[in-house]
């Protein structure tokens, strides 16, 4: 990213002495002023505000500084070491929550749950459903427990390696399987992620390519009724589509669809069983995205 010109810097300095600290991350004076307002709103002592602005100057995420990030209607606690929930995730999760039947009991399992934002948002909107979060990181697990307590929403948690020990996770058929797996390939990591993400967010939650999508087709499809996986690239959606299309059994059992976020980027690959489910999945997923198979 280009450096901020000295003229803008001095202009910012005139408005508020902390603004030049915020400029490298916020990029414009208007955005910096907005952030400064939020920082001032949530932190009370001048020393803390100064400290926060200095950290922002080092591209440290605002969500770790203020300790929270809005996710749909929820305010999710954020801590260093756990991925910060993104608005794109909130968007598809909120839409999914609105589509779930208001009364019916269902089971939802969220893999790579991180802060627990996805299952908590679903539970908040549909209190009758039963939600479980799985993560391999103990930091993530303790944070999601904290979030579940703070939001007063019941969330079952299990520390497990999704890729290797999937058979130890839960039992029986899962109605809805959600997952926001690490999906940035190592070769793209340096080039395509922003500084703040690269420096301060856990690589465990970021770096990955097809592992989780492969794992989905091999281990999860036979024991779930539907799945919603976030993707970072269309190739990941296409991989899942191809695997199911070419599968001797799943091909006739499953529908697969793609969904874009409102920025126009491929964001979700989802699928559901054509029949044999206790809930009518095709009505839930009607127009959720574009059906490909």
């Amino acid at each position: 990213m280009p450096r901020i010109g000295p003229r803008i810097m001095s202009e910012a300095q005139k408005i508020h002495r902390y603004l030049p600290l915020l400029l490298p991350e916020c990029r414009s004076i208007a955005a910096s002023l907005q952030e400064l307002k939020w920082i001032k709103n949530e932190l009370n002592s001048p020393r803390k505000i100064h400290q926060a602005c200095r950290l922002r100057g080092l591209h440290y995420p605002l969500q770790y500084i203020l300790g929270s990030q809005p996710f749909g209607e929820l305010d999710v606690i954020c801590k260093s070491g756990v991925l910060i929930p993104r608005w794109e995730t909130a968007e598809w999760a909120q839409d999914l929550a609105d589509r779930l039947p208001a009364e019916t009991k269902m089971t939802v399992t969220d893999l790579c749950t991180g802060t627990g934002c996805i299952p908590l948002l679903l539970k908040y909107n549909r209190p009758q459903i039963d939600v479980t979060g799985i993560d391999i990181s103990s930091k993530a697990l303790s944070l999601s427990r904290q979030n579940s307590k703070a939001l007063k929403l019941e969330l079952h948690l299990q520390k497990q390696d999704v890729l290797n020990n999937n058979e130890k996770i839960g039992s029986g058929i899962i109605d809805i399987l959600t997952c926001n797996p690490p999906y940035i390939p190592r070769r793209d990591f340096i080039k395509e992620t922003t500084l703040s993400v690269k420096l301060y967010e856990p690589r465990l939650a970021l770096l990955g390519d097809m592992e989780f999508y492969k794992n989905l087709v091999e281990k999860w499809l036979y024991r779930s009724n539907s799945f919603i996986y976030e993707v970072g690239d269309i190739s990941q959606s296409e991989y899942v589509l191809k695997e199911i299309q070419h599968h001797t059994v799943f091909s006739s059992l499953w529908h697969v669809g793609f969904r874009n976020d409102s920025n126009g980027h491929p964001r979700v690959v989802y699928g559901f069983r054509k029949e044999g489910t206790s809930h009518n999945m095709s009505t839930i997923f009607q127009n959720y995205g574009q059906l490909m198979h």
Binding site: E35, P70, W87, E88, N180, Y183, E192, T194, S196, H265
Partner: peptide, 20 residues
Amino acid sequence: RIDVMRARGKGGQHVNTTDS
């Protein structure tokens, strides 16, 4: 029509924006 932040790049995990 509802427009939200239009970031360049791939979005999602690649960027962490505070623009709302």
